[in-house]
Design a protein around this nucleic acid. Structure first.
Lengths: 121, 121
DNA sequence: TTAGTTTTTGCGACTTAGTTGCATTCATTC
DNA sequence: GAATGAATGCAACTAAGTCGCAAAAACTAA
């Protein structure tokens, strides 16, 4: 099971909270907030945030703030941009954008805001 | 005085809170949060947020969330991107990026995150 | 100028995402 | 299968932003 292996590689204790969390994030098609996760599994928010913060420190997940004051998390995989709709607040992953070079800066993440396909009809 | 005129054009009452706020934002070189503003002038946060929200509704200012859970505001002028440093959290305006076209979407804003010039030394 | 109406302000109470301290429970190691 | 160090859950807390309300300021017309 690759999730168990990943946890042990990082020298984290193998707890069911961690397994459940990573299970959810590895199967998610889009970034999730704590609210999204707690609808799927019962977990104290302190446990969620403490584990997520460890996962981020180990570069297993990455995160960003959306329009709704919530932070969204996803498993780090292929670099891609995120589109946040200013009308419906939906978050979508956008692949295939050439990565941006700006002199002297390292661009690690790109967030686009505007009007999504659904709302632009 | 262009600020007075602007307020009156929008049919807002000409109060000193509004004049002071717009004065600050028109002269700012980068987006500001409420915290930044209250260091410059004494203003109740409710007054700040209520006025800012009116300015946004009238497209006088625009805003985005940063890494630090705060919202940053600036006067709407030439469209440009923002760079947020993941290390020092500083926000910079980035001009001269070609605007991105994505089929079916309207891109209104671009936020880049990564490592800024200062931190990348 | 003033009297009347409406809008804005400031205060305090509230909301909500996220954090922290602490006692209990659990995973690991010998 | 005990010892021990880390992880969990709970409750209390923090901080950005919102809301209701009474007082104050802006505009309007006489």
């Amino acid at each position: 099971m690759k999730i168990e292996k990943l946890i042990q590689e990082k020298n984290f204790k193998l707890t069911s909270a961690r397994k459940e969390l990573l299970e959810i994030f590895f199967h998610a098609k889009k970034p999730l907030s704590f609210e999204d996760v707690k609808d799927k599994i019962s977990m104290d928010k302190a446990t969620f945030y403490r584990n997520i913060s460890k996962f981020e420190a180990e570069s297993i997940v990455s995160s960003f703030e959306s329009n709704d004051k919530k932070r969204y998390y996803e498993v780090q995989s292929v670099p891609h941009a995120h589109f946040i709709c200013n009308i419906c607040n939906k978050i979508e992953c956008i692949d295939g954008l050439a990565d941006l070079k700006i002199d002297g800066y390292i661009v690690e993440d790109m967030i686009l805001k505007g009007i999504c396909k659904q709302c632009n009809k």
